[in-house]
Structure formats: C-alpha cells, structure tokens
C-alpha cells in the first residue's frame, strides 16, 4: 500500500524543520548587526563573494523549492481548519490558531521580503549594506511589518518543533508534551527578544 497523503504530510513536516534551520542561520547572520554596522557589512560582503553559479542553485533548490512546497501544501492544510480559540480557549488551541495566522502573514510577508530585498535589489543593482537597510527600515511601517514578520517566522518555527514532536510520535504523554511545549515557547521568546534587539540597531543611534 502506498499512501501519498501520508508521505506528503510527513515531508511537509520535515521540510518545515529544514526551513527552521535556515531561519536560525538567517537570524544568526542578521545578528552581526548587534556588533556594529561594519560587522553587518562584512557578513553581507562574505555572502556576496560566493559566485552566482553556486549561490543561485542553492537559493533556488535549497530555499525557494522547499519554501514553495511548504507554503502551497500549507495553504491546503490551513484551509482544512475552522479555528475555534474563542470557544475553546486552551493554550494549545491558541497555538494551533496562531500557527495558521502566522502562516498567512508569512506567506504575504515573505513574498514582499524576498521580492524586494533579494530580487528587486539584484535587478536594479542596489548594493545591499547596513546603510541601505537603515534607510529602508527608517519607514516605521516597514520596520513594524519586518519585526512582525520575524516574530511570526520564529513562532511558526518554534511551535512547529513542538508539533513535530507530536506528529512524529516522539512526545507521547501529556507531561513530555508540556515540557517540550514550554521549552519551544522559551526559545520563541528568547529569539523574539534577540530579533527585536537587532532591529532596534537600525532605528536607534546605538553605533
């Protein structure tokens, strides 16, 4: 017997975890700004040194393709749910709902984010650097949307680790499920604070 649904769902779950790893690297790179604009420019410069014939296949094959699959199949999954956190206001049900709300936001946010900062800048030849990002994020609307985008991605990923443990049958009993949930939410809070700090560097005269 070969159940395509089963393998698609499990693949969706695995790809989510893989993209979470990418998110961690992305946050790690962005955090260079906490050490000052020069450090940030150095990190961007190092990435720019990678030749396009290596960089483009990585970006398309290891980032765009998994994202596309996760997003498209995710839309199908999200449409199967009728969120009911008002009637059943339990913590885990709120997390379930937020997992879907953050997904919708991320779908729009990531198209905008990737289009502008990865495609538009390359086409028009804008050189990505701290100073460019600083002027871009000086628009308070953009800044807020970017912070929300980061928080949405972080919640979606950390809560995803939590549900991954249930979906794969790793965490079975209620106690271990609660322990993993709290650990994931702790990680979520820590990463949210960290990204808030790095986003503040762009608008506050710290350096």
């Amino acid at each position: 017997m070969f159940n395509i649904t089963f393998y698609l769902r499990r693949l969706h779950s695995l790809v989510g975890l893989f993209m979470g790893a990418f998110l961690m690297v992305h946050i790690g790179n962005n955090s260079a700004v906490l050490l000052g604009p020069d450090m940030m420019n150095m990190v961007i410069g190092t990435m720019d040194k990678m030749p396009m014939f290596i960089r483009l296949p990585i970006e398309l094959g290891l980032i765009a393709a998994p994202f596309g699959f996760h997003a498209l199949y995710g839309v199908y999954i999200a449409l199967q749910a009728r969120n009911n956190p008002i009637r059943y206001g339990y913590l885990q049900n709120w997390q379930f709902t937020l997992q879907r709300w953050t997904a919708w936001y991320l779908l729009v946010f990531l198209i905008w984010h990737v289009y502008y900062l990865a495609i538009h800048t390359r086409i028009t030849g804008i050189h990505l650097c701290f100073e460019f990002l600083q002027s871009y994020l000086s628009n308070p609307v953009y800044w807020v949307l970017y912070v929300l985008g980061m928080w949405a991605a972080i919640f979606h990923f950390t809560n995803g680790i939590n549900t991954f443990c249930m979906t794969w049958g790793i965490a079975k009993g209620p106690r271990i499920q609660m322990v993993i949930n709290m650990a994931c939410m702790g990680l979520c809070g820590a990463l949210c604070l960290e990204t808030l700090a790095l986003m503040l560097v762009y608008i506050l005269p710290i350096f």
């Binding site: 009911n84 339990y90 885990q92 049900n93 979906t167 049958g169 009993g173 209620p174 499920q177």
Partner: peptide, 28 residues
C-alpha cells in the same frame, strides 16, 4: 495525518480518554 495538534479533543472528552496520547502512539 490531518491531525493539527490543537489538543482540544483530550480536554473535551467527557470520559477522560487520553486522546492526544493515543494519537501520538498511532503516529508512531
């Protein structure tokens, strides 16, 4: 595989059946 881990079932069960535990077991 359509389970989304909202955890409502175990709270709603009037018979106190540990549904999320058995869902995880079947997932395994």
């Amino acid at each position: 595989t359509s389970c989304g881990n909202s955890g409502n079932c175990v709270k709603a069960c009037p018979k106190g059946i540990k549904l999320t535990t058995y869902l995880a077991q079947i997932n395994r």
